[in-house]
Design a protein around this nucleic acid. Structure first.
Ligand SMILES: [Mn+2]
Ligand SMILES: [Mn+2]
Ligand SMILES: [Mn+2]
Ligand SMILES: [Mn+2]
Lengths: 221, 221
DNA sequence: AATAAAATTTAGACAAATCTAAAAAATTAA
DNA sequence: TTAATTTTTTAGATTTGTCTAAATTTTATT
């Protein structure tokens, strides 16, 4: 409990956690890509993390977080998302600006700090991109969402989160006034390019590409 | 402008700045003591900082910050004190708890973050310990203060800052209800042990040791 | 001024995290 | 099921920041 790991190790655990969530066997190359480093460096670090029992690792086979490794990852993610919320809600940053700063803030150690921050912010459940914020014990409430590209037509729903969270994507959505919480409805699906005509509450209809629609997740209950 | 220095280098610059302020020639041993490291490590780092033109250093002689070195130090101090203010005023931490956390937060890079934080906090001029907060350009307003032990008798004044800021000291002051901004007056000076009898507004008179009085700084206009 | 003591620097080593180039293993394709 | 390709690991370096022990320089004392 509450051992301090290096920033680098925390980043590895977080990246492994995210890759595990999305799918599949977490490969050395995928980690190198995610962490902007070289495969050889990943192998080195995996050995160290295995040594510390933060993950299971057999060479040439994949890697899997232990309960402890998962716990650490979730604490980092909690911190990341709470700081993002703080930056947007209290310091008026745009949602496309906060990820980079949160990448630094998430490594600040104090547990008391983050719990106080959580209270100060009113215990938000999701971050500015709609991603769930783990509670103090690392628990996340799962929710039912679906990509807008897979959603039914003429059935109002609400934007819940964003897939690709690149700065470019977030700026585009800001421009199109598609925000977390926006109420919208698909009016038309065009088979030629799979583009969608959507209507956001109180706005005129707009067209969005399939690529965009695949990265907008909406409520599906 | 805005090159990123390592946490370690930032800490060296800050420590050198503080020692320079207090007095004298900044020695290798003094730095080792301040940074909780060994003199040999200090020498190593001084060479690197000289290389980067952050300070002037001739071996066996002292060390002195360049304008650039001073600028970096002041930015770190600005961040440290703004974060301390945030922790006390927004997250309800005690003034004895915040230094340690601010030691980490002060190394977060974003300039925009700190300027936004400054505005969010209402551009405070002093931190929770009464120390002045440099502005965005690194300027500090100097002010006229004197140790309570050197202050005149029967002349009301106001507590402005604290010298020794150890956790023990801050806890003692909290216990005695001596805070930044407290209005008080020396009622008696006892020659035997140089202890003082003081009266804080709306409280009964209390006695404080000379050691304590030397570390309480009051307005002197 | 010579000697002793203290402060500072150098030499050599180490841990953490990274890299490049080469070797080994696994996967895919012929 | 070989051969080619891709993935992963190993070997050996490098950088940053630190350390201990020994050498050097400065400062203080006789
Ligand atoms: Mn983020
Ligand atoms: Mn986010
Ligand atoms: Mn402090
Ligand atoms: Mn302070």
């Amino acid at each position: 409990m509450q051992i301090k790991y290096s920033t680098s190790k925390e980043n590895y655990l977080k990246a492994i956690f995210h890759l595990q969530q999305e799918n599949k066997n977490v490969t050395t190359n995928a980690l190198a890509e995610a962490l902007q480093t070289k495969p050889a460096s990943v192998t080195d670090m995996l050995k160290k993390l295995k040594e510390q029992k933060l993950l299971l690792y057999e060479k040439y086979y994949g890697v899997k977080l232990t309960a402890e490794g998962k716990k650490v990852a979730l604490q980092i993610i909690r911190k990341h998302r709470l700081w993002e919320y703080f930056l947007v809600e209290k310091l008026a940053f745009g949602w496309e600006e906060v990820h980079e700063i949160a990448e630094e803030l998430e490594h600040i150690g104090s547990k008391k700090l983050i719990d106080r921050l959580d209270d100060f912010l009113g215990n938000p459940r999701v971050d500015p991109h709609g991603d769930p914020i783990p509670d103090s014990n690392g628990k996340i409430e799962p929710f039912k969402q679906v990509a807008l590209s897979d959603y039914k037509i003429n059935k109002p729903t609400i934007v819940r989160s964003i897939g690709n969270q690149s700065v470019e994507m977030l700026e585009l959505l800001k421009h199109k006034k598609i925000l977390i919480g926006s109420k919208l409805e698909i009016k038309n699906k065009f088979d030629f390019d799979l583009s969608l005509e959507i209507k956001i509450a109180n706005q005129s209809p707009i067209t969005i590409s399939d690529q965009l629609a695949k990265n907008i997740f909406v409520q599906n209950d």
